[in-house]
Design a protein around this nucleic acid. Structure first.
Lengths: 216, 216
DNA sequence: GTTGACAAAATTGGTACCAATCCTATTTAC
DNA sequence: GTAAATAGGATTGGTACCAATTTTGTCAAC
C-alpha cells in the first residue's frame, strides 16, 4: 500500500512519492530526447516492457499524447510520433509571441526585486549549462526561465496553455539549438530580458521576446 | 461492420458516419448544457447506461475531460465536474483577449470580401436565434462566429488552442448570457466587429474584441 | 440525542483474455 | 522472372472479470 500520492490534474506532471513518473511523461521525454524519431511507430508491447507498466497505462498514455498532438493515432494500426512540418512550428511560435508579449506590461508592473533576482538566477543557470550540460538539461533550464517569466503575470491558466504549446513541437529540443552560437545568443537574450524588466522598458521587452521566440 | 470512419485526432471532434458521437463530446455537451452541475460526481455505471457505451470508452472519455480540466479526478473516488471560480474565468478571458486581439492585424490584411460576407452571415444567424433559439444553439452560433474570425488569421494551431480554452469554462453557456439584453449587446458587437474589419480599423477592432470577451 | 464503531453495499481501477484487423513472407500461376 | 494470391504471425482494441478502496447504513455505547 502506498503512503500517499500527489496527483495534479490537467496537463501538469503526475508523480508519486516513490519518484516513479507517469508513463505519459516518460514517453514524452523519450520522444523529446529524440529516442523515438518523428514517424516511428510506438508498439504497445515495446513500451510495456521498456517502462515496466501494464498495457492499460500504456494505452492511456498514448491516448493522452494523441490528444496533445504529440503522437498520431491510426485506428487498428497504432500510434506513431507526429511529423511536425515547418508551418506548424511557425504557427505555434506566433501564438507564443502573442501570449508572452501580451503579458509584458503585467510582468513589469508586478515584478518585485526578488522576482527579478530569481529570473536572473535562472538565466545564469542556463548560461552555466552552456558548456557542460546536455541538450535535455538545457531544454529544461530554458523551460524553467520561461515558466518563471510567465508566472509573474499571475495567470495560472496561461501556464498550462504555454506548456501544452511547447509539447506540440515534439522534436523541439533537438532541432531548436543545433549550433552552439545560437544557444549563446539565447543565453544573452535571457539576460537582456531581465534587464528590460528591471528597467521597466515594456517595448524593449516585447521586441526581445519576439526575436527570442522566433529565433532569427 | 462499418462502412467508413472519420477520425480527427487532437482536441477536435470525433464523429463517424452513423452520426454517433464520441462519448467525450456527449458528456461535455451535457456538462455545458447544465445537466451535470458543477461539483456533481460522474459515476461510471450511470454514464455507461446513459450513453450506451462500454466501460472502457467511458473511462477514456473521463480521462480526456480530466486532461481538459472539465472534470477533476480524485483517485479511488471518481470524477466530478470542475468548479470554476471567478479568477479562472478572468484568466481565460485574458488569454482569449491576447490571442483574438493579437491576430486583428492579420485578419484585416487577409480578409477578402467573401470572408467578410461569411462573417456577416454568421453574425446574422446569431441574431436570428436571439428570439427563437435555445441557449445551446446560441452558444454554438456564437462559437461559429468566433471560429470563422480566428480562421481568417490562417493559424491552424490557434484554432485548437482557443477551442480548448473555451471548454475549460464548463458552465459557460449557462452563466454567460443570463439576461436577454446582454445577448442583444453581443449580437450588435458581432456586427460592429465585421464593420471594423471591413473598414480596416485595427484599433477599433481590438477595442471591440476586448469589450466583447470581457463582457462588461 | 449524539457520537463512534462495525458491517454491507457500491464504485473504482487494474489485469487477463480473446476477437478483429493488419502486415509480412512464402507459394503459385502466368 | 514477375505479380498476384494465400497462409501465417503480430498487433491492436474491446470485453469481462476481480481485487482494493470508499461510502453508506445500522447498531451499540455514552
Amino acid at each position: 500500500m502506498r503512503a500517499s500520492r500527489v496527483v495534479m490534474t490537467g496537463s501538469q506532471t503526475v508523480t508519486d512519492v516513490d519518484g516513479e513518473r507517469d508513463a505519459t511523461q516518460l514517453i514524452l521525454q523519450d520522444i523529446q530526447s529524440g529516442i523515438y524519431a518523428p514517424g516511428t511507430w510506438l508498439k504497445q508491447i515495446d513500451l510495456e516492457t521498456r517502462y515496466g507498466r501494464g498495457r492499460n497505462e500504456i494505452r492511456r498514455a498514448l491516448d493522452r499524447l494523441a490528444l496533445k498532438r504529440v503522437v498520431e493515432h491510426v485506428p487498428n494500426r497504432g500510434y506513431h510520433v507526429y511529423l511536425s512540418d515547418g508551418k506548424q512550428w511557425d504557427d505555434i511560435a506566433e501564438i507564443r509571441i502573442m501570449l508572452e508579449t501580451g503579458i509584458a506590461g503585467k510582468v513589469i508592473a508586478h515584478a518585485t526585486t526578488a522576482d527579478i533576482a530569481g529570473l536572473r538566477d535562472l538565466a545564469n543557470r542556463f548560461q552555466g549549462l552552456l558548456l557542460s550540460g546536455t541538450v535535455l538539461e538545457l531544454y529544461e533550464a530554458n523551460l524553467a526561465f520561461h515558466r518563471a517569466y510567465v508566472d509573474l503575470a499571475g495567470n495560472v491558466e496561461l501556464h498550462s496553455v504555454i506548456a501544452e504549446l511547447r509539447q506540440r513541437t515534439s522534436s523541439a529540443p533537438v532541432s531548436q539549438w543545433h549550433t552552439r552560437s545560437r544557444i549563446e545568443v539565447s543565453a544573452a537574450e535571457h539576460h537582456e530580458m531581465v534587464n528590460a524588466i528591471e528597467g521597466k522598458d515594456e517595448m524593449r521587452l516585447r521586441t526581445l521576446i519576439e526575436r527570442h521566440i522566433r529565433q532569427k
